[in-house]
């Protein structure tokens, strides 16, 4: 293949030469490594997030990376520090605040909504105070995989390992508390403490992920692989593993497409994730429907 000599010759049908092209530049290797670390972590954290129906909290925490990054820029700290501080603080506020509410679900989500809007408003103020980066705010919001350094890859890998160790430690009680809170509490599982710890890990994970996909699109990597996996199988271990595999596959596909074509990486990652989810959902509906059709005579018989 002569195209392998030209790094930007476009996508061909030969996967080996495509892979060689993809890894021809160090910045792309960094992006793929960082993306893999983030996707593995997002796959696990997102799986629990979907199970616990905390998508709104996850989305809000991911948006908190925006004031984090702009605030850090303003006072001259590395952006990563701002990401982790703001996401962690918001996770604490949401976790502690909603344990004080609990009157009904609407009020809990009102609190989350207020945190989100206030955080974004702060981010916009920081951005206005730090004039001159207005052109860069889009990379913050929508992701930029070109400028990832070795140091960032290392930080992301460490965060991912820490988060996964955390899950290895509290995974079982967390699963118990997520599936049946009342019974778990009766059995002495510290439900509230686990909920707070989970939100903190979620904040940590989105702070890391936001650096690759951008603040607005973290959510696609958190929710889509997990929701797709939970459509495909209801066995816990299998869907957890599937969620991680799907997350990594979506990230690689998105990065590769953004490398070969000109559209932004966030667009490709969300589109691939959405397409896979729709396929899984439709397949599941068709299977369920045909099972129902096949069993209808039996059911009618049982009712007669």
């Amino acid at each position: 293949m002569s195209s392998s000599a030209l790094p930007l010759a476009g996508l061909s049908l030969d996967p080996v030469s495509d892979f060689q092209q993809l890894t021809a530049f160090p910045f792309m290797v960094n992006a793929l490594e960082a993306g893999t670390a983030v996707a593995i972590m997002a796959g696990v954290v997102g799986w629990f997030m979907v199970l616990r129906r905390e998508s709104f909290a996850g989305h809000t925490l991911s948006l908190m990376a925006f004031p984090g990054a702009t605030g850090a820029l303003l006072i001259g700290l590395p952006a990563a520090a701002g990401y982790f501080v703001f996401c962690g603080a918001s996770a604490l506020v949401i976790g502690l605040g909603s344990s004080g509410v609990r009157r009904h679900r609407g009020e809990e989500s009102a609190l989350t909504g207020v945190v989100q809007a206030l955080g974004l408003a702060c981010g916009f103020v920081f951005l206005s105070l730090y004039q001159g980066v207005l052109a860069g705010y889009e990379n913050l919001l929508f992701g930029d995989f070109l400028g990832i350094t070795r140091g960032q890859v290392l930080t992301l890998a460490i965060v991912a390992v820490l988060a996964l160790c955390g899950f290895a430690l509290v995974g079982r009680p967390l699963l118990f508390a997520s599936v049946d809170e009342t019974v778990a509490r009766a059995r002495g599982v510290p439900v509230r403490g686990l909920a707070l710890a989970f939100l903190l890990v979620l904040g940590l994970a989105v702070a890391a992920t936001a650096q690759i996909t951008g603040v607005l699109l973290v959510f696609a990597l958190l929710v889509a692989p997990a929701a797709t996996a939970q459509q495909i199988t209801c066995r816990i271990g299998a869907s957890l593993v599937l969620s991680v595999i799907l997350g990594v596959a979506i990230t690689w596909a998105g990065l590769a497409l953004a490398y070969f074509y000109s559209e932004p990486v966030g667009f490709y990652i969300t589109t691939v994730a959405f397409t896979i989810y729709v396929i899984a959902r439709v397949t599941r509906a068709v299977i369920d429907h045909s099972t129902l059709l096949r069993r209808r005579p039996e059911i009618a018989e049982a009712h007669a």
Binding site: S55, H59, A220, V223, I269, T271
Partner: peptide, 11 residues
């Protein structure tokens, strides 16, 4: 809602 609107933001 989450999946649909993540994709629409991507658009």
């Amino acid at each position: 809602i989450g999946i649909v609107f993540a994709w629409i933001l991507g658009l």
